[in-house]
Amino acid sequence: MEKLLEEFSLGLFFWQTVLFGLLLFLLYKFAWKPILKAVNDREEGIKNALDAADAAKKEMQNVTADSEKLLKEARAERDALLKEAREIKEGIVSEAKEQAKVEGDKMIKQAQATIESEKKAAVAEIKAQVANLSLEIAEKVIKEELSDKKKQQKLVDDMLGDIKLN
Protein backbone atom coordinates (compact mmCIF):
# COMPACT_ATOMS: atom_id res chain seq x y z
CA MET A 1 0.00 0.00 0.00
CA GLU A 2 2.82 2.38 0.89
CA LYS A 3 4.50 1.52 -2.38
CA LEU A 4 1.27 2.18 -4.26
CA LEU A 5 0.90 5.59 -2.64
CA GLU A 6 4.49 6.40 -3.40
CA GLU A 7 3.96 5.39 -7.00
CA PHE A 8 0.88 7.60 -7.31
CA SER A 9 1.70 10.66 -9.34
CA LEU A 10 -0.62 13.62 -9.02
CA GLY A 11 0.60 15.08 -12.30
CA LEU A 12 -0.17 11.91 -14.20
CA PHE A 13 -3.58 11.71 -12.55
CA PHE A 14 -4.25 15.30 -13.56
CA TRP A 15 -3.24 14.76 -17.17
CA GLN A 16 -5.13 11.46 -17.40
CA THR A 17 -8.32 13.07 -16.11
CA VAL A 18 -8.04 16.11 -18.37
CA LEU A 19 -7.00 14.19 -21.47
CA PHE A 20 -9.51 11.42 -20.93
CA GLY A 21 -12.29 13.95 -20.41
CA LEU A 22 -11.30 15.72 -23.59
CA LEU A 23 -11.06 12.42 -25.47
CA LEU A 24 -14.47 11.37 -24.17
CA PHE A 25 -16.00 14.64 -25.27
CA LEU A 26 -14.39 14.63 -28.73
CA LEU A 27 -15.17 10.99 -29.36
CA TYR A 28 -18.74 11.48 -28.20
CA LYS A 29 -19.22 14.43 -30.48
CA PHE A 30 -17.41 13.22 -33.59
CA ALA A 31 -17.40 9.44 -33.36
CA TRP A 32 -19.75 7.64 -31.00
CA LYS A 33 -22.79 9.78 -31.70
CA PRO A 34 -22.66 9.45 -35.50
CA ILE A 35 -21.53 5.81 -35.31
CA LEU A 36 -24.29 4.73 -32.95
CA LYS A 37 -26.80 6.75 -34.91
CA ALA A 38 -25.71 5.17 -38.20
CA VAL A 39 -25.84 1.69 -36.71
CA ASN A 40 -29.23 2.40 -35.17
CA ASP A 41 -30.57 3.81 -38.42
CA ARG A 42 -29.32 0.79 -40.29
CA GLU A 43 -30.91 -1.60 -37.82
CA GLU A 44 -34.13 0.35 -37.93
CA GLY A 45 -33.99 0.22 -41.73
CA ILE A 46 -33.52 -3.53 -41.67
CA LYS A 47 -36.37 -3.91 -39.20
CA ASN A 48 -38.63 -1.70 -41.29
CA ALA A 49 -37.74 -3.61 -44.44
CA LEU A 50 -38.53 -6.90 -42.70
CA ASP A 51 -41.82 -5.50 -41.44
CA ALA A 52 -42.66 -4.26 -44.92
CA ALA A 53 -41.83 -7.66 -46.38
CA ASP A 54 -44.06 -9.28 -43.78
CA ALA A 55 -46.89 -6.89 -44.55
CA ALA A 56 -46.45 -7.53 -48.28
CA LYS A 57 -46.58 -11.27 -47.62
CA LYS A 58 -49.77 -10.85 -45.63
CA GLU A 59 -51.27 -8.68 -48.35
CA MET A 60 -50.28 -11.28 -50.90
CA GLN A 61 -52.02 -13.94 -48.85
CA ASN A 62 -55.10 -11.76 -48.61
CA VAL A 63 -55.07 -11.21 -52.36
CA THR A 64 -54.71 -14.92 -52.98
CA ALA A 65 -57.53 -15.66 -50.59
CA ASP A 66 -59.67 -13.03 -52.27
CA SER A 67 -59.00 -14.35 -55.73
CA GLU A 68 -59.70 -17.86 -54.56
CA LYS A 69 -62.97 -16.68 -53.10
CA LEU A 70 -63.86 -14.93 -56.34
CA LEU A 71 -62.98 -18.02 -58.31
CA LYS A 72 -65.15 -20.14 -56.05
CA GLU A 73 -68.02 -17.72 -56.43
CA ALA A 74 -67.66 -17.66 -60.19
CA ARG A 75 -67.56 -21.42 -60.26
CA ALA A 76 -70.71 -21.63 -58.12
CA GLU A 77 -72.45 -19.12 -60.35
CA ARG A 78 -71.47 -21.03 -63.44
CA ASP A 79 -72.79 -24.23 -61.91
CA ALA A 80 -76.03 -22.53 -61.00
CA LEU A 81 -76.37 -21.14 -64.51
CA LEU A 82 -75.71 -24.52 -66.04
CA LYS A 83 -78.22 -26.13 -63.77
CA GLU A 84 -80.82 -23.56 -64.61
CA ALA A 85 -80.15 -23.95 -68.30
CA ARG A 86 -80.50 -27.68 -67.99
CA GLU A 87 -83.78 -27.26 -66.17
CA ILE A 88 -85.06 -24.85 -68.79
CA LYS A 89 -83.98 -27.20 -71.52
CA GLU A 90 -85.71 -30.10 -69.87
CA GLY A 91 -88.83 -28.04 -69.37
CA ILE A 92 -88.87 -26.99 -72.98
CA VAL A 93 -88.29 -30.52 -74.19
CA SER A 94 -90.97 -32.00 -71.97
CA GLU A 95 -93.38 -29.26 -72.92
CA ALA A 96 -92.67 -29.85 -76.55
CA LYS A 97 -93.17 -33.54 -76.06
CA GLU A 98 -96.45 -32.92 -74.34
CA GLN A 99 -97.56 -30.57 -77.03
CA ALA A 100 -96.50 -33.03 -79.67
CA LYS A 101 -98.39 -35.76 -77.94
CA VAL A 102 -101.48 -33.63 -77.63
CA GLU A 103 -101.18 -32.58 -81.24
CA GLY A 104 -100.60 -36.16 -82.29
CA ASP A 105 -103.56 -37.34 -80.33
CA LYS A 106 -105.63 -34.63 -81.84
CA MET A 107 -104.46 -35.53 -85.33
CA ILE A 108 -105.07 -39.18 -84.68
CA LYS A 109 -108.56 -38.40 -83.46
CA GLN A 110 -109.19 -36.25 -86.45
CA ALA A 111 -107.88 -38.93 -88.69
CA GLN A 112 -110.02 -41.47 -87.02
CA ALA A 113 -113.04 -39.22 -87.35
CA THR A 114 -112.26 -38.65 -90.98
CA ILE A 115 -111.75 -42.32 -91.52
CA GLU A 116 -115.06 -43.00 -89.80
CA SER A 117 -116.92 -40.45 -91.89
CA GLU A 118 -115.20 -41.60 -95.07
CA LYS A 119 -116.11 -45.12 -94.13
CA LYS A 120 -119.70 -44.12 -93.57
CA ALA A 121 -119.78 -42.22 -96.83
CA ALA A 122 -118.20 -45.16 -98.62
CA VAL A 123 -120.68 -47.57 -97.08
CA ALA A 124 -123.55 -45.28 -97.99
CA GLU A 125 -122.23 -44.99 -101.53
CA ILE A 126 -121.76 -48.73 -101.73
CA LYS A 127 -125.25 -49.13 -100.42
CA ALA A 128 -126.63 -46.75 -102.98
CA GLN A 129 -124.66 -48.39 -105.78
CA VAL A 130 -125.79 -51.77 -104.57
CA ALA A 131 -129.36 -50.50 -104.60
CA ASN A 132 -128.89 -49.05 -108.06
CA LEU A 133 -127.29 -52.22 -109.31
CA SER A 134 -130.08 -54.26 -107.77
CA LEU A 135 -132.64 -52.00 -109.37
CA GLU A 136 -130.88 -52.27 -112.72
CA ILE A 137 -130.66 -56.01 -112.32
CA ALA A 138 -134.22 -56.15 -111.28
CA GLU A 139 -135.23 -53.99 -114.21
CA LYS A 140 -133.25 -56.16 -116.54
CA VAL A 141 -134.76 -59.27 -115.02
CA ILE A 142 -138.22 -57.88 -115.05
CA LYS A 143 -137.71 -56.71 -118.62
CA GLU A 144 -136.64 -60.22 -119.43
CA GLU A 145 -139.48 -61.79 -117.55
CA LEU A 146 -142.05 -59.55 -119.01
CA SER A 147 -141.02 -60.26 -122.52
CA ASP A 148 -142.63 -63.73 -122.30
CA LYS A 149 -146.31 -64.11 -121.43
CA LYS A 150 -145.91 -67.23 -119.74
CA LYS A 151 -143.22 -66.00 -117.69
CA GLN A 152 -145.17 -62.93 -116.89
CA GLN A 153 -148.06 -65.09 -115.79
CA LYS A 154 -145.80 -67.25 -113.80
CA LEU A 155 -144.31 -64.30 -112.15
CA VAL A 156 -147.60 -62.90 -111.25
CA ASP A 157 -148.53 -66.25 -109.92
CA ASP A 158 -145.39 -66.56 -107.92
CA MET A 159 -145.84 -63.17 -106.57
CA LEU A 160 -149.39 -63.75 -105.75
CA GLY A 161 -148.35 -67.07 -104.22
CA ASP A 162 -145.81 -65.26 -102.06
CA ILE A 163 -148.20 -62.77 -100.79
CA LYS A 164 -150.59 -65.39 -99.62
CA LEU A 165 -152.74 -62.85 -97.99
CA ASN A 166 -151.46 -62.65 -94.60
Binding site: G11, W15, L19, F20, L22, A31
Partner: peptide, 20 residues
Protein backbone atom coordinates in the same frame (compact mmCIF):
# COMPACT_ATOMS: atom_id res chain seq x y z
CA UNK B 1 4.22 19.63 -7.85
CA UNK B 2 5.02 17.78 -11.05
CA UNK B 3 2.71 18.25 -14.02
CA UNK B 4 5.26 17.12 -16.60
CA UNK B 5 4.35 15.65 -19.93
CA UNK B 6 5.80 12.27 -19.07
CA UNK B 7 6.07 9.18 -21.23
CA UNK B 8 2.67 8.00 -20.05
CA UNK B 9 1.07 11.34 -20.85
CA UNK B 10 2.60 11.15 -24.33
CA UNK B 11 1.17 7.66 -24.75
CA UNK B 12 -2.26 8.85 -23.59
CA UNK B 13 -2.12 11.61 -26.20
CA UNK B 14 -0.94 9.16 -28.89
CA UNK B 15 -3.69 6.69 -28.01
CA UNK B 16 -6.28 9.45 -27.88
CA UNK B 17 -5.20 10.71 -31.29
CA UNK B 18 -5.27 7.18 -32.67
CA UNK B 19 -8.77 6.62 -31.33
CA UNK B 20 -10.01 9.95 -32.62
Amino acid sequence: LDFSITKNVVMIIVTGALML
